[in-house]
Amino acid sequence: MAKVVVVTSGKGGVGKTTSSAALGAALAQRNEKTVVVDFDVGLRNLDLVMGAERRVVYDLVNVIQGDAKLTQAVIRDKRLDTLYLLPASQTRDKDSLTPEGVERVMNELKEQFDWIICDSPAGIERGATLAMRHADVAVVVTNPEVSSVRDSDRIIGLLDAKTEKAERGERMEKHLLLTRYDPARAERGDMLKVDDVLEILSIPLLGIVPESMDVLKASNIGAPVTLADSRSAPALAYLDAARRLAGETVPMTIPGEKRGIFGKIFGRRAA
């Protein structure tokens, strides 16, 4: 049965799109049919991060308004047969998303895919609330920084109130994905530690993605981090996070100095 995952954060620029692409690709690499849906209507970027910007013909709004069929709008990744993308509209605004339209598209996607990853826009308005509306699981992307943690707390509140699952009286499954983490700075006491953020937000940890040049490199070439270099530190973090999302028990490693060269060598051998 299809699982709907919303990747959300409240605050902008913390890595929602990067994480959506990386987790989507990581799940698809497990041979599970995955579609990543861009809900950032007006400011689409998932197409660019996934390297499909020149192949966009139709988008989510076209499908909602009946101008295109879902099969016409969904773009299959050139590297992975199991990875698909449903882009957002560039020209419309977020009001073109209607609750009924989104529900219809989600139901149709659920029939065809194992995983539906909803890349939420920043903020707490319509785009963000519709992206989380049909989710079974939420991935809350947070940076170890005060404004990001505060906004994540707000989003957690919305996930527990404004989603279908919450309205049915069920518990929304929420996971923390800590991104742009710098273990050295945290150790020096200049950055919130993993445990600090976990204690404040009190939701289970899905993964720790280290601050890394590899993330920028991947978006430069238009490849999800896990596909650009599957042995880079952030890729390993996302691959592990995807396994946890799929229900596997994977020991949590804090990527950084301690693993360092040793971890890299080990990572290469294992791959």
Binding site: V146, R150, D153, R188, G189, D190, I200
Partner: peptide, 20 residues
């Protein structure tokens, strides 16, 4: 040595207790 992370942590805990 004065570090900033504990300050961030405490400020967040107080703020979020109120906001929640």
């Amino acid at each position: 040595k004065q570090t900033s992370a504990p300050v961030a942590r405490e400020r967040l805990q107080v703020l979020l207790a109120h906001e929640r």
